[in-house]
Design a protein around this nucleic acid. Structure first.
Lengths: 111, 111
DNA sequence: TAACTATGTAAGGAAATCTAACATGTTATT
DNA sequence: AATAACATGTTAGATTTCCTTACATAGTTA
């Protein structure tokens, strides 16, 4: 009942497009998956599918990599920030959720 | 300066996924393009790319087709409604635009 | 020095998409 | 009624996109 999902989290983007969007090579994107930083869905045929959230995350990862942070460090940071998020961020997310309900797709398949 | 675009209008979805999302066959989706109801982008290699807005539009088209409306009628309706939209809808869209600015992607490539 | 990290590249194969053409049942038009 | 247009399926062959695996390598860590 809670936690409605919107466009942002729908996994519909193939790796080629993600590569274009992020500027990362497909090699890099697959590697970050191997290092458990990103978790695409798959088509029945086995092609990877990403969401806009994934694209955002990949860009954050790219920044950290550029700053010399290693994948396993990034992984730790991620599990850490997944655990406890600031009250402000929590509130912001709840508001966003409300907005999604109010103004999101009407009767579409993305609610 | 005005008219910022968000996830919803980014053309990043391939036809197979659109087909899944809408329940339409790829044949149908290509045909509606031929009838000028939908306008996907293309990759350099020539593959079609759609946005979530396109997906929504396709679902509306599908409904009308089911109701027996012909493509060229739908086309007329579309150009007509593109011209003048109700004040309520206009207002709703402006509010939505504001929300995108407030709560959309921070410094990402989709603003 | 030996292992690990991050990335490139190549090969071969499979999946996804493309266009064009033909078939068909259903609606319009004449 | 005959002809044309509409909407969709299907097939074929070509091209694009994606997959995994493996090897190479420069830089980093142990």
């Amino acid at each position: 009942m809670a936690n409605e999902t919107s466009y942002k989290d729908k996994k519909v983007i193939t790796i080629g497009i993600v590569s274009e969007l992020t500027g990362l090579s497909e090699r890099q994107i697959r590697y970050y998956e191997e290092r458990k930083l990103i978790f695409p869905d798959r088509t029945p045929g086995g092609s990877r599918k990403y969401s806009f959230s994934d694209v955002e995350l990949l860009m954050e990862i790219a920044e950290k990599i550029e700053d010399g942070v290693q994948t396993h460090e990034i992984r730790k940071e991620m599990t850490r920030s997944k655990k406890k998020l600031t009250p402000e961020e929590a509130k912001r997310r709840m508001i966003q959720g409300q907005l999604n309900v109010q103004f999101g797709l009407r009767k579409g398949p993305f609610s």
